[in-house]
């Protein structure tokens, strides 16, 4: 069990690197509208952000208002960024 815990950091890193590679590939391989690719890239970026917040920063250990605030931040930052990008 403690081995798994020790490796959690590495597993998360592998996922983050895979998502980064996916972003890179999406940019060059996907034959979609540029704006659609842009939105997908942004969503992927904020998925990575949420992964870092929940796994590395261990948001679940913070008090409830802080957890809500960080979820709100991710949702608003992602949503407003995409909205402004598309306007």
């Amino acid at each position: 069990m403690s081995n798994l815990l020790k490796d959690k950091a590495t597993i998360v890193l592998v996922i983050l690197l895979a998502l980064t590679l996916l972003s890179w590939l999406m940019l060059y391989a996907l034959k979609l509208e540029p704006k659609t690719v842009g939105v997908l890239l942004l969503v992927l970026a904020f998925v990575k952000v949420q992964l870092i917040i929940s796994q590395y920063m261990e948001l679940n250990k913070a008090i409830f208002p802080i957890r809500i605030a960080f979820w709100l931040w991710t949702a608003c930052a992602c949503g407003i960024s995409i909205w402004m990008y598309l306007r």
């Binding site: 890239l41 942004l42 992927l44 970026a45 904020f46 990575k48 870092i52 590395y56 990008y85």
Partner: peptide, 23 residues
């Protein structure tokens, strides 16, 4: 310190995506 460093990392993730990648 760990929390701060993770923040620095996640902010770069978004900055990189916006500035370098997003068409």
């Amino acid at each position: 310190t760990g929390l701060y460093w993770h923040m620095v990392d996640l902010l770069w993730v978004v900055l990189f995506t916006f500035i370098y990648l997003v068409p």
